[in-house]
């Protein structure tokens, strides 16, 4: 099966500092592709450039079409969606209202069913600022999920969640990737989540591509252990 979403040579410079340099990556339908690396490896920069949040170098292709210059809103309507590491929701709106807006923006989607799946159904009519942090993270994720996008770029969805909450999240993501015919890019620090649900892993270090492959191989790759696990052990 060929890639639905392809990034070629993505890069980004802040002033004179190279945050990301020439990274390639491909996403396939039905697969969760994990993007990992130590702090400052360029994971979030990668997702920002790939999603069109910040301008950088390189090209982004979706279904064979070059979408590098396409605005984020247009990408969302095409089926490329993303979540945010720093919760990016609408505090004063009820969760129902914001999911409804997201569904309308994406061109349709079942808000009730999605909320039920993520366990948000009981707080649907509460304002987002009134619910717990874990639930706010789920709202951020739900905003990206509404309307069943074809490509999902998830920026640390488990950040700040408890172990139990992370496990629930991992279960949801597994279900989604298996049932929705969606290609997922998962930037995540929580290694339990990563190794549980990812089919492929790409490792970045200091803004450069390090290695890519099945989780079992990446886990034992000496370069990865040196760059990553070595630094945290």
């Amino acid at each position: 099966m060929s890639a639905i979403f392809r990034c070629e040579g993505l890069g980004k410079q802040y002033g004179g500092v190279v945050a990301l340099q020439g990274v390639d990556l491909e996403l396939e339908v039905g697969k969760v592709h994990g993007l990992i690396g130590p702090n400052g490896a360029g994971k979030s920069t990668f997702i920002d450039v790939a999603s069109g949040r910040t301008a950088g170098f390189g090209r982004v292709h979706f279904q064979g079409r070059d979408i590098t210059a396409v605005a984020p809103g247009e990408r969302r309507r095409m089926g490329v969606s993303r979540s945010f590491q720093r919760t990016s929701i609408f505090p004063a709106l009820t969760i129902r209202d914001q999911l409804d807006l997201a569904a309308h923006g994406a061109g349709g989607g079942d808000v009730e069913a999605l909320a039920a799946m993520l366990g948000l159904d009981r707080v649907l009519d509460r304002r987002a600022e009134e619910v717990s942090y874990g639930q706010q993270r789920l709202v951020d994720l739900a905003l990206a999920l509404v309307g069943a996008p074809k490509v999902l770029l998830l920026d640390e969805p488990a950040a700040g969640l408890s172990v139990a909450e992370s496990e629930v999240l991992a279960t949801h993501l597994e279900e989604i990737s298996a049932q929705w015919n969606v290609a997922v890019l998962l930037v995540e620090h929580d290694m339990d989540v990563v190794f549980r649900i990812c089919h492929v892993l790409t490792v970045l270090a200091s803004g450069r591509f390090l290695v890519s492959g099945p989780p079992s191989e990446v886990r034992t790759d000496p370069a990865v252990i040196r760059a990553y696990f070595g630094s945290t052990a």
Partner: peptide, 8 residues
């Protein structure tokens, strides 16, 4: 920003 990322 998020509104723009929601397709508007």
């Amino acid at each position: 920003e998020r509104v723009r990322f929601l397709g508007y």
